[in-house]
């Protein structure tokens, strides 16, 4: 399938790609990322998974590798500092700045304020975890802290993004592919109720240490914090073990109460996103493997290059990489309205 890119004469959108490990960083850069985003191996980033992320030396090497190839590195320090432990987050900012990160992706107001005052020349981005989704909220961050780019929550339509982009003095970044949070991120507490830990404070939604899968009967049972959140019949696709994608009995019906397991894929609406004033596209998945990374980054690189030269957009088959083997444009087109 192809899609024409006529009518999209705006500035080319940057392709921002995930890097859970140094190896993934190299893969993303080689596959055509304009920038990669990554984080430290601790609670300062919202993908604090076992075996994932960078230490101080790995980040410095990664930045040097990316810069040598014309790519940028954005460091996500996008959780909210615990009371009495702000030094952990401040140290992470210092290390990222020392590593020559091109930008820091922050969410915590106190940390943003500290980073701005301590490193006035450092480029700061506002993380999706800050859940800034209105013009006044974004203007506050821009005018108060000099935020240069905001990552919008995955709850807005293309028209709503356009309205925001034309009324704020900063760049707009949106999610383009991967796992889909339908919640206003940074405000979602579902994981906390089941596990006592949350992406906002501990850097993990549905921490792996609380997840258990078991073959029972003729199906796979997924549990989070001891709660059964889904039973997958044999042969049926499965999703991530998050409460928002679990199936529950509600009003005498067993159903996906919040959302079905599915992944975001915006390749088909890239011209509309560009026209809306989006400056950067983010591929989700620091927890994914290099094979996923190479496939998605190349697909979006080809699409963005086609868009820039007004060629027909390639629409590669990516459903095998998606949760539940399904894909959607999510809130960008709210067909349920």
């Amino acid at each position: 399938m192809t899609l024409t890119s006529s009518g999209s004469s705006q500035k080319t959108m940057e392709l921002i790609c995930p890097a859970g490990t140094p190896s993934a960083l190299r893969t993303a850069v080689e596959a055509g990322a304009d920038a990669v985003y990554c984080g430290f191996r601790n609670e300062t980033n919202a993908r604090n998974f076992p075996g994932l992320n960078f230490d101080d030396a790995e980040l410095r090497e990664g930045v040097a590798y990316a810069h040598a190839r014309g790519a940028k590195v954005l460091v996500a320090l996008n959780t909210f500092a615990r009371a009495g432990c702000t030094k952990v987050w401040q140290t992470a900012v210092e290390q990222a700045v020392a590593a020559k990160a091109d930008a820091l992706i922050l969410a915590d107001l106190g940390l943003i304020d500290w980073a701005r005052k301590t490193f006035p020349d450092q480029r700061l981005h506002l993380s999706v975890q800050a859940a800034a989704a209105t013009v006044p909220a974004i203007r506050f961050y821009v005018e108060t802290f000099g935020i240069r780019r905001v990552v919008l929550p995955r709850v807005l339509t293309v028209d709503e993004i356009s309205a925001i982009a034309s009324n704020v003095a900063c760049e707009i970044e949106v999610f383009a592919f991967g796992g889909l949070c339908v919640m206003a991120e940074g405000r979602c507490l579902l994981s906390s109720y089941a596990t006592g830990e949350s992406p906002n404070m501990n850097g993990v939604c549905s921490p792996a240490s609380h997840v258990a899968y078991a073959q029972e009967g003729n199906g796979l049972v997924a549990r989070l914090g001891g709660f059964t959140i889904d039973r997958y019949p044999s042969g049926k696709p499965v999703g991530y073990p998050t409460l928002c994608k679990g199936r529950f009995s509600c009003n005498a019906k067993v159903m996906h109460v919040f959302e079905e397991p599915t992944s975001l894929n915006t390749i088909g609406i890239l011209p509309a996103l560009q026209k809306a004033g989006v400056a950067a596209l983010k591929i989700e998945g620091r927890q994914r493997g290099k094979a996923y990374l190479a496939a998605t980054v190349r697909a979006f690189r080809e699409a963005l290059d086609a868009l820039a030269t007004e060629r027909q957009l390639p629409l590669p088959e990516l459903s095998g990489l998606t949760e539940g083997s399904r894909q959607t444009v999510g809130s960008y087109r709210k067909t349920w309205r």
């Binding site: 490990t21 075996g51 796979l220 083997s325």
Partner: peptide, 24 residues
């Protein structure tokens, strides 16, 4: 895992750590 070609059981954190170590 999504397509059921791979199954995991038991300590999910250990599986993730092993996967990420191999990936890197």
């Amino acid at each position: 895992f999504f397509t059921r070609d791979l199954t995991i059981e038991g300590d999910t954190a250990a599986v993730l750590a092993l996967r990420n170590a191999i990936e890197d």
